[in-house]
């Protein structure tokens, strides 16, 4: 065969395709909250596709109260150096300077997260301005599309973080999938009104109606505590799951983490889910979401 000629074009970084494409590589996987390099290694050993580096898991943020902020850069560096898999970190909603700091630290994804205390009650960060891609939470399709319009390259249904209760995760994912299914049935005339109702750009609404899915990867988050929870979210249409407090607030984190990874891949095979669910030890205790005061619901943060 002929010899190859080296390419000389200038590389383009931070393109939408590179940002969204990164999330495509995470599909079918589990992203785990970790607070130390040791936990990050346990997550990697268990087969996590990425870790979320943060100072306190959501269950502890709930318990401790006060303002929750971006993590200490030293702590994030420690986790980046400990593992070979991608590392994500959280900024407060609208706190674009925290996001700038996370980008300069070289994290692989920024989660503009309702789990931290919002810094702006009107505006989210302009995510197009960054090379580092963003994932954002959403409780419904309109919210997801507003985040995508701001430049989010991945969406996660919010659920209710730090509760160990999957009910809100199910509610939000069903809401998003249901609204997408409804759009599929609309004709062109109806899409303009749908965009107004969803408070989302018409072009994105039209794209979703045509694709039958979001134009970016959709994961589920907020309340997954067991292998069966993870498989439930996958069967409901999530392309992967975030597990926050559910792993490292349980009795045997390494075993539970590996079990959730396996159940996420074989989400449609009850015999595998049964096998990996045996003798996992204590699950995190969990909180009943209907007794949670409105002011303590993280899912209400973001607009």
């Amino acid at each position: 065969m002929s010899s190859t000629s080296p390419s000389t074009t200038t590389p383009e970084t931070g393109t939408a395709r590179v940002k969204r494409g990164m999330a495509e590589q995470l599909k079918g996987g589990v992203i785990m909250d970790v607070v130390t390099p040791e936990e990050a290694k346990i997550a990697e050993d268990a087969g996590a596709v990425a870790v979320m580096a943060l100072e306190r898991v959501p269950a502890d943020i709930r318990k401790d109260g006060g303002v929750a902020r971006m993590s200490d850069p030293d702590m994030i560096d420690g986790i980046i150096n400990a593992v070979s898999i991608p590392v994500m970190a959280k900024s407060r909603i609208g706190h674009f300077v925290e996001a700038q700091v996370l980008q300069s630290l070289g994290v692989d994804y920024i989660d503009e997260s309702e789990v931290l205390t919002p810094a702006d009650e009107v505006n989210h960060s302009d995510k197009w301005a960054f090379t580092t891609p963003f994932v954002c939470g959403a409780t419904n399709l309109g919210e997801a599309l507003r985040r995508i319009a701001e430049g989010a390259a991945m969406i996660r249904s919010k659920g209710e973080a730090g509760t160990g209760n999957v009910v809100e995760a199910v509610r939000h994912l069903r809401q998003i999938k249901g609204e997408i299914a409804r759009l599929r049935g609309y004709d062109n005339n109806e899409l303009y009104a749908a965009a107004k109702e969803l408070r989302a750009p018409y072009e994105l609404v039209k794209e979703v109606a045509e694709l039958g899915k979001l134009p970016v990867v959709l994961f589920s988050a907020g309340g997954v505590a067991t292998p069966a929870d993870a498989a439930l979210m996958r069967q409901l249409g999530a392309e992967g799951v975030f597990v926050g407090s559910g792993i490292f607030k349980s009795g045997d984190p390494a075993k539970r983490a590996a079990a959730i990874v396996k159940a996420t891949t074989f989400y449609d095979d009850p015999s595998v889910i049964a096998d990996v669910s045996r003798n996992l030890g204590e699950a995190m205790v969990g909180i009943n979401c209907d007794t949670l005061p409105e002011s303590e619901r993280y899912a209400n943060r973001g607009w």
Binding site: S7, T9, T10, P11, E12, T13, G14, T15, R17, V18, G21, M22, P86, Q103, G106, V107, D108, Y109, T131, T132, P133
Partner: peptide, 9 residues
């Protein structure tokens, strides 16, 4: 890492 991810011909 991801910040260096790129597209090129």
């Amino acid at each position: 890492r991801q910040n260096e991810s790129f597209e090129a011909s």
